[in-house]
Nucleic acid binder design. Structure first.
Lengths: 240, 240
DNA sequence: CGTAATTTTGACGAAATTCAACAGTTGTGG
DNA sequence: CCACAACTGTTGAATTTCGTCAAAATTACG
């Protein structure tokens, strides 16, 4: 079996983007598909699910609410992502997972994952965890040191990159139906300010958004504004 | 051998705080101690070290610099933390590690770690990675949704909790020699604002800081201000 | 086609930054 | 031990970024 370390990821990515169901298929795991409406809970914090959720279509997020109602999205999930790697590691999740758009998820019984070769599972999971950690680190940098418009620019660059890696974005365009209010909760801004930031990007002829389709009109300039450095994503382009 | 899952962590923590060198000792790994001055590089991004660094004394951080000089600290490391778990997983680190104070680190040859039982290593590492991820998640929440004074309060609560778990803090006091400028880079603020935030906490009779010793004068009120919920730390108090 | 959700805009206020100056502390070599 | 330099902490004033409140315009959806 192909381990995470031996696959020529870069080449694979260029010639054949990983299918969203890659994880389940690689291991020959059974998977039950389920459709979930937008703005819906997929997992609650403290849940002890007996299935792992593989996102197959749509966008979802992990988030946390403060007692006074403030909400912060800690990760945006795209097709191919495992919503709850914690469920696999600890049979318990500490965060909530919500859908941001209509989604299709694949449910994989944890019992079946437990029968896999431990070393393979470790290779794959540590690969994915490392990538998620790199993304989280970059979010911390954004939230701490980038101003609103740079934050938004960076998130759009990141999403395009990740979506392209699974064949869901071209060089400069992808489907984006995330609400400005959800962007606000991801970027640590208010919905009103997100609106103004987007207007700033439009006025600067950097993006064009219509009908849920985002076009990056000048990706080099957008990446420069965001100080986007894809190194943190490139190193582990395609975990199984 | 005791695995991460089977140890009664809470009890262990109350009766015998984990020693900083726990990781190396648990596995009988050789370790070479080294003293590092404050504000010093321990690892550069893109390094491919042949040792893992276990922090034994002092405070360090992982951080990232933007091209224009802005700096964001993505993690604060305390005794007992492995500075570079990535080195163990991938023999390469993507981030810089600096000391914030004078430090003692233990260098553990990666070659020796590779000889360990994979399942044990997986249990320990996934445990630590999960805890770090939980801390990173909470930092994202802080940076995104807490105002300056709440951010500082939350970080102080987190540090006290983590330091207490390794026997380096009492119920309301611990040594703290981190610079206001470094706090700024951790909290996504300017040094000037950190100073004002600290003054706010002092004026509110919440903290007292002198001679590198921090006292939390009213921990319940501080935790309420920060909306500090230690759940994210409690669940995995003491990885080996 | 009508209702709800989302987006857009303006006016005003709060939080945080910038710039600048100064005080205090720490560390160093003489 | 002192003098000095470098770093760290403190404070004020002006400015920028972002939040809040409120309302209107547009879009999505049953």
């Amino acid at each position: 079996m192909l381990t995470a370390q031996s696959a020529p990821f870069a080449l694979v990515r260029m010639t054949r983007p990983a299918a969203p169901e890659g994880f389940a298929r690689t291991f020959g795991l059974p998977m039950r598909e389920r459709a979930i409406p937008k703005q819906h809970d997929l997992l609650l914090p403290g849940a002890e699910p007996d299935v792992a959720h593989l996102l197959l279509a749509g966008h979802a997020c992990r988030n946390r609410m403060l007692r006074d109602g403030r909400r912060q999205i800690t990760a945006i999930l795209i097709p191919g992502d495992i919503c709850d790697p914690e469920a696999i590691l600890a049979h318990r999740t500490e965060y909530a997972v919500n859908t941001l758009t209509r989604c299709t998820v694949g449910e994989i019984p944890l019992a079946r994952i437990g029968t896999l070769d431990h070393q393979d599972l470790f290779a794959i999971l540590s690969h994915r965890l490392r990538r998620e950690e790199a993304i989280a680190r970059e979010w911390i940098v954004s939230l701490g040191r980038r101003v609103g418009i740079e934050r938004m620019a960076h998130l759009l660059c990141e999403l395009r990159w990740r979506l392209a890696a699974v064949g869901l974005a071209t060089e400069d365009s992808f489907e984006l139906r995330i609400t400005q209010s959800d962007f606000a909760d991801a970027l640590g801004l208010t919905p009103v300010h997100v609106n103004r930031v987007l207007k700033g990007l439009r006025d600067g002829r950097l993006i064009h958004l219509r009908g849920g389709q985002l076009t990056l009109l000048d990706r080099p300039r957008l990446e420069k504004l965001a100080q986007f450095d894809p190194t943190y994503l490139e190193l582990w382009a395609n975990p199984a």
